[in-house]
């Protein structure tokens, strides 16, 4: 039997090396249309925006310059999926607290009700820092438009729905170049675990 042992060790070593190699090379996909301008591939990026956060401060693309961020759409009076999303987003917040290059952006889809003052109270009760987690309000149509055309997620008013809105429970992962790199179900713990893992992969790019 001693004759086979080096061979087995060798196979194992190769296996470990391959696994390690794969883990290092794992890349997140880049979502959206790709075009080629003759020189480089041009990827879908988040359009320019300007919203107002819980401190009354302007939040724009510049806020997320050289930052990775996780974003979602919700409203404070929602009692269906939003509280679950916020419970899960708090896990993202806690998991990234030592990562200064990772931020969170939550858009209200009910800006008439969710004023700056209300969002301030909401964030305060959630016990989160506004520098790391921006809750933003703004012009309703601008919020709905950016949801659909930039983040490829759903946000609409619909009086027939229990709370008056149709919206997705998705969390989107945006990279430092404003590109979508992941989409996760913000109501599922396992999917949010995957998001937290993907943030670590993205930070190594």
């Amino acid at each position: 039997m001693a004759f086979y042992r080096p061979a087995i060790i060798c196979i194992c070593a190769v296996g470990i090396l391959m696994a390690a190699g794969c883990a290092q090379k794992r890349q997140l996909p880049i979502y959206g249309s790709h075009t080629f301008n003759g020189k480089d591939t041009v990827y879908h990026t988040i359009a320019p925006f300007q919203f107002t956060d819980q401190d009354g401060a302007a939040v724009t693309n510049a806020t997320f310059k050289d930052k990775i961020y996780v974003t979602d759409f919700f409203f404070t009076s929602c009692r269906t999926i939003c509280p679950i999303m916020k419970t899960q987003m708090l896990r993202v917040y806690e998991a990234t607290k030592n990562m200064p290059d990772v931020l969170i952006l939550s858009h209200t889809i009910d800006p008439e009700y969710d004023t700056v003052a209300l969002l301030h109270d909401y964030a305060n009760r959630l016990g989160v820092e506004s520098a790391r987690w921006h809750f933003v309000t703004g012009v309703r149509d601008s919020i709905y438009k950016i949801a659909q055309t930039s983040y490829f997620t759903a946000a609409l008013q619909d009086k027939t729905e229990p709370d008056g809105f149709i919206h997705s429970g998705a969390f989107m992962l945006i990279d430092k170049k404003s590109r979508i790199r992941g989409k996760y179900d913000g109501t599922k713990k396992e999917d949010v675990n995957r998001l937290i893992g993907d943030i670590k992969i993205l930070r190594q790019e």
Binding site: I81, P83, L126
Partner: peptide
Amino acid sequence: SNCHQQDGQGLRRLY
């Protein structure tokens, strides 16, 4: 349970 959670603990100072 969406707000008050499965374990009845609520959520921070929100619920």
